[in-house]
Design a protein around this nucleic acid. Structure first.
Lengths: 240, 240
DNA sequence: CCTACCAATCTGGTAGGACCAGTTAAGCGA
DNA sequence: TCGCTTAACTGGTCCTACCAGATTGGTAGG
């Protein structure tokens, strides 16, 4: 479902990030050469170069021709998409990042929902109702609606008529795909989520900004707390 | 300063994006094979693969082994970092994106400034004062303070104690580096910017949320309008 | 002992070829 | 027209090679 690139490249990216972490490299520090890394990781130099191209694009590393590979930013200071990448690679987040993502999501969605109330078109509303129907159908037959949940939230944000907000929220949601999947394993939660989503659409239809922002705030906050509970429970019975 | 990767890879990324645009490819459409692309673009297959690794990481394309390369999202629906990439490659933004970025920046910074008022530590304040001194010095000797402006805004957001907000604002600012550079060519604007920044710090020091959010809203809004005026003027006297 | 210079070495950037194993579509036969 | 075999195609991986600027270590000169 995730990790778009090949296993070797994916490995190289992950191992490079782990290398940076393990050696506690700081901004400006130099990484081993491509040839060196390819030996360490047991992959071709080509794969290492693909990985470095990705890390460069994420503004994590910088390749200086004829010189070396340097850390451009601390891992904490790269972009949002780097977090998605990290999640896709199966690298863990610390609690700080998890909290910050939740807060950022709330702030972002509150504003987006507010704008959606102001600017949503009838077409937006129709789209939301359609997604709601799909959602209800999936809840009925017990499907895991992790993807549909993302699609729904993004559709609401899209109703704000600001595509950059959509681009902002996308990584904020994608980086927690793994948790969302486990979260929606519960039938009770699926049911509760449907109710919340219905309320969203009602508020946006009525252009009721106060209710809409309040609802989404509570929705995301509650979900985050549930996920945290899931995580602690998961940490308890780690039998796998 | 930008476009971290090599010229060939950079070319391949740009040309691939242009190809998608020119042929009006939609989500799910298939791109030519790597070998085909490398011929079209006049670069090695390795460079094409580096480019595709980047586009994959940005969730723009998806490479299915033994099958082909498919468009994963419309260009409009990728992440924020894809916009930075686009800017780095010199690809143009349409007016819609420019407006949306401004609005998103305002929303993001308003919230971040608000939190910064609540949570800023004395260390944060000291850091801001230090950046302010640097800023003043650069204004005095007429330097182009595009980078320092970014650093300052990010430092304020960092005072919100939410690193994800920093990650969010970073691409929003980086994607307009080109314009910011031209913007700060004016001595009057540099002076005005310094005054605004001083006011920011004062408001944050006093934990005055209302003032801080109002100031940053006006600051970003005004800057965006100035840049737009610059753009129109620039479009008028295109002698280069 | 320090400095200045020079050559061997290392680095990223680019090129081209090769093989593998699934995918896909063309073409053949029924 | 339909169904199946097969050959071409595709991404994934590996290998070797060369270029030219950056780096570095050692050496000669002060």
């Amino acid at each position: 479902m995730l990790a778009a690139f090949s296993t070797e490249t994916s490995d190289a990216v992950r191992k490079t990030l782990e290398f940076v972490r393990h050696h506690r490299l700081a901004k400006g520090d130099r990484l081993p050469s491509e040839r060196d890394l390819s030996e360490r990781f047991g992959v071709t130099r080509g794969s290492v170069r693909e990985a470095l191209a990705v890390l460069d694009a994420m503004r994590i590393t910088e390749r200086k021709p004829k010189s070396g590979i340097y850390l451009r930013n601390a891992l904490e200071d790269s972009g949002l998409d780097a977090l998605v990448l990290q999640a896709d690679l199966g690298l863990p987040f610390d609690a700080q990042v998890t909290r910050d993502v939740t807060e950022a999501r709330i702030l972002c969605e509150e504003q987006a929902f507010r704008l959606a109330c102001q600017r949503r078109t009838d077409a937006d509303l129709a789209k939301l109702h359609q997604l709601l129907d799909t959602y209800a159908a999936l809840v009925a037959n017990g499907s895991n609606l992790a993807d549909e949940d993302v699609a729904f939230h993004l559709a609401v944000v899209a109703a704000s008529q600001n595509r950059v907000l959509v681009r902002t929220l996308t990584p904020l949601m994608l980086m927690s795909t793994g948790w969302r999947r486990r979260y929606f394993a519960s039938a009770e939660i699926r049911q509760r989520s449907l109710i919340d989503h219905r309320a969203f659409v009602a508020a946006i239809a009525a252009r009721d900004e106060a209710t809409a922002t309040m609802l989404v705030h509570r929705h995301v906050q509650t979900a985050a707390e549930d996920v945290r509970a899931l995580a602690e429970q998961g940490a308890a019975d780690r039998t796998d």
